[in-house]
């Protein structure tokens, strides 16, 4: 799939407390999580982000807690893809499970407000503001299958259906 939008740039080690602070975890509704997405990293994020925009970060994005509220908050904000130099393990897994795309790439040349065009199939990231192209690491085969199936729950439903046949 191809997505285009602008960059919201963050640094290294953006932890899940910054993505969705624990004080909001008493309500797991998408609306609540969307409203407070990235609040402790950039308090204005939820008012500025538009559907299709990208979160771009440095190393170890999503470190810390296992809260799935973090990728849900990002997805509910309309962000289709997070691009970072590297991701923490549980965040990575949660994102694929809920159908949020995650791309590992060199993000040094991407700055706040840059317009990107991202092809999740080829991993090609075009920076239209700077006229550069970066290639993301290929998504592992199993993970790609999982996202293409629509996430882990869709995959589970399919499994039940096949079992019952």
């Amino acid at each position: 799939m191809i997505f285009s939008g602008k960059v919201f740039k963050f640094g290294d080690n953006i932890d899940t407390d910054a993505i969705i602070p624990a004080r909001y975890l008493n309500d797991s509704s998408e609306e609540n999580l969307r409203k407070h997405c990235m609040e402790d990293a950039d308090a204005t994020f939820s008012s500025k982000v538009s559907k299709g925009d990208f979160i771009v970060a440095g190393n170890n994005f999503g470190c810390g807690s296992s809260r799935e509220h973090a990728p849900i908050a990002i997805k509910a904000s309309g962000v289709p893809v997070v691009i970072a130099k590297s991701f923490a393990r549980i965040f990575y897994r949660n994102s694929f499970n809920i159908g949020l795309f995650i791309l590992e790439a060199d993000t040094d040349g991407m700055d706040n407000g840059d317009m990107l065009e991202v092809d999740t199939d080829t991993g090609e990231i075009k920076n239209k503001t700077k006229n550069t192209v970066v290639k993301a690491k290929p998504i592992p085969k199993f993970m790609a299958e999982l996202v293409n199936a629509g996430g882990l729950i869709a995959y589970a439903k399919k499994k039940i259906k096949e079992g019952k046949k």
Binding site: G64, S66, R67, E68, I90, R93, N94, L152, I153, A156
Partner: peptide
Amino acid sequence: SHTCTYGALGAFATGVGSTDLAY
């Protein structure tokens, strides 16, 4: 995420997400 604590007992224990847990 701190499910890894049980490694102290000689178990393989790891943190996952809520969708994983549902599965």
